[in-house]
Nucleic acid binder design. Structure first.
Lengths: 223, 223
DNA sequence: GACTCATTCAAGAGAATACTTGATTGATGC
DNA sequence: GCATCAATCAAGTATTCTCTTGAATGAGTC
């Protein structure tokens, strides 16, 4: 039945441990217990998990030797079983942090460097709109669009972009906008459209900034 | 959409990394790459994974920053991206090793302490068999039994034990044996039968040891 | 351009996880 | 015994992962 390859066996156990730590809730539980032993109900409250859910995650952690439990009267007190669990989490976190940094980096490389230089300022866009020289698309969700958008903008949520290409002009310039400087939707839209041969730019920042400048807005409740 | 809680965000990434390392195949891949950069096909052969499967696991590892890939002509050479991945794996392994030890411990407590003291030595069993004072059962698989077994032993694979209780004597002592000292089948069988009121002991060690002592054997090809 | 080779992608079946709900267990106090 | 409280179990659904298959891509060669 079981192949008696000790190395593979260790890998199998290690992998199971990895998966055991491979859930944000369980990491939060570990962090919680790192502060000291607690009964289940208190842990659930602290972490915001439902009681049954917390209990199940704790049992899983216990099965893998990460935490220990002891009954005290009606309550079951959980505590961290092994300092090394924290070391392992720290080792993973260190890599994860690098990943987050690299991710932002990638984002910038992938989108900003391509598009940011050629972004349309809001004043320029206002002029172009007055001249009917551009098609403006709002790539936010329908709800956001309904709550307020640039006058004359076409709402094409990013997810629907591929399906609604027919609505876009092949020759006239397109300007896409989204939620703001930290929102990547319009970068994404521009990249997709450019790949299909459209002439497209992004608007600098997003709708909130447009509105904040006191420019004309359509839709939404009068604010 | 995303709650901007930096701590939770780090946990989420860390958890994903944990799950990324939470698969025996991926740990084997990491071990393989720890020895040096290689193209996919070579990695697949080394690890025994199918090509597509290896490729997919490698891509996942790459997505989480554990490995890097570089195209060289037709081939894609993968290599370990970060020493810290090995540290993380080592941290997990250390805990896993303890778990394996604890697991064996549990096994021993659960089975050995109950049964080992009262195990029947091979010489005593031989004497009892000569006197027809015991029923001997072989709880290994049918294949193993056919390849060789104790003379007069009844083959009842552990899985079939519950269904074949009728074949066993209620009063005569039963002796169960299996593959050897590291095989728990006979422990399991003894525990099950004892729970049902049978008089049962295990034979020390297992069939290979019996045979190695030059004792009489039935079945199998003449060796 | 056609052809080959290494790798990746895409889709689908099957298995494993996660979280919820409501029932159950275990310890305590009346 | 009965009621109460903390925790666990059990079952069901929704989601995610895994691995296989066969097609598609990208780079090099003829």
């Amino acid at each position: 039945m079981a192949r008696h390859n000790p190395k593979r066996e260790l890998f199998a156990w290690t992998a199971e441990l990895g998966r055991c730590l491979g859930h944000a809730h369980r990491l939060v539980l570990i962090e919680c217990l790192a502060q000291g032993p607690r009964p289940v109900e208190s842990i659930a409250a602290f972490t915001g998990l439902s009681l049954a859910n917390a209990s199940q995650h704790l049992q899983l952690l216990r099965r893998f030797g990460c935490v220990e439990a002891e009954r005290q009267g009606k309550q079951v007190i959980y505590r961290l079983a092994d300092e090394r669990v924290l070391h392992a989490v720290a080792a993973l976190s260190a890599i994860a942090e690098t990943n987050i940094a690299a991710f932002s980096e990638t984002m910038r490389k992938h989108f900003l460097s391509l598009d940011d230089k050629e972004a349309v300022s809001r004043s320029e866009l206002a002029r172009l709109m007055k001249e009917n020289a551009v098609t403006v698309i709002d790539v936010r969700s329908n709800e956001e669009f309904t709550a307020g958008h640039l006058p004359g903008a076409l709402n094409i949520p990013i997810a629907a972009l591929k399906l609604r290409l027919a609505e876009l002009p092949k020759r006239m310039e397109i300007v896409a906008y989204c939620r703001g400087p930290y929102c990547i939707l319009s970068f994404e839209a521009a990249a997709q459209l450019r790949a299909r041969g459209y002439r497209v730019r992004r608007m600098q920042d997003g709708f909130p900034q447009w509105k904040a400048e006191g420019r004309k807005v359509a839709g939404g409740v009068a604010a």
